[in-house]
Every structure is written in C-alpha cells, then in structure tokens.
C-alpha cells in the first residue's frame, strides 16, 4: 500500500463527494454534477482530478479512452482522517445535537445491532408461519 494520501482540500472534498456518490466517473460526468451547484470550467475539474490522482486521493483508470476516476479511499476512511482535525471534532461535539436524523448521533453497539436483527427475523418468521 502506498503511503497515506494527504487530507483533501474543500474543493477536492467536493469532487470526492461526487465520486463516492456516483461511483467511478469520467471527468465530464464529474463536471456535470459540480456545475449543478456552481458554474465551473471543465478544465478546472480536469486539472483538479489530475492533481488528486498525483496526491493519491483519487485513482485514474487509463484502460479506457476517456479516463475514469474513482476515490482512492472510502468516505468513512476520509471522515476518520478529517476527524483528526480540531475544528471537525468541535463540530461533531456540538452540532451533533442540532441536526436531526433517522439515527441518533451516537452509534449502536454490535451486540445491540445483532439483537435488532434477531428481532426483525423473529417478526418475519412469525408473519409467515
């Protein structure tokens, strides 16, 4: 495994977000999504992707005619990497209670999750018996 890629900048994070969301994509596809939120030149996106590939944040697949890029690391990995950042930690502590989600900010333990699975299965069995 090559050495760890550096932390992405905000602009790079945006492009990574597209790559995670859409899966491996051509520069054109990435540009289309980015341009939906703010006017951006195709060449800017191309340049950024090349830089990201050099840094090891993104990977380029040269097998096809138009280059396809994908994120080098998973979203979870990058989130952990960013969580080392003090600002990010402060945010997690205080913003966690301000946003509303289908799940609480705190995680469920593995044991509990297994119990939940069992409950769901039992319910299903009961239904089809």
């Amino acid at each position: 495994m090559p050495s760890e890629p550096p932390k992405p900048t905000d602009a790079e994070l945006e492009i990574l977000c597209v790559l995670w969301s859409r899966g491996p994509s051509t520069v054109r596809a990435v540009h289309e999504v980015i341009a939906e939120r703010k006017p951006t030149q195709y060449t800017t996106v191309l340049k950024q992707l090349q830089v990201m590939a050099d840094k090891g944040i993104a990977q380029r697949d040269d097998a096809q005619r138009s280059h396809v890029y994908q994120a080098a690391r998973s979203r979870e990995w990058t989130q952990r990497q960013l969580a080392g950042d003090l600002l990010q930690r402060a945010f997690e502590g205080s913003a966690g209670s301000l946003v509303l989600g289908a799940l609480s900010a705190k995680k469920t333990s593995k044991r509990e999750l297994a119990e939940v699975r069992r409950m769901l299965d039992d319910y299903e069995k009961g239904l089809f018996r």
Binding site: C17, F91, A95
Partner: peptide, 16 residues
C-alpha cells in the same frame, strides 16, 4: 459553534 457547524455541513464537501 454547533450551529456554525451545521451551516458548514450544508456547504462543505457536498454535491447534488
């Protein structure tokens, strides 16, 4: 600070 964090969360590293 949490509120500022949520404002940042809306904008930073997002795509449609």
């Amino acid at each position: 600070s949490g509120w500022l964090g949520t404002v940042r969360l809306r904008r930073r590293g997002v795509c449609d």
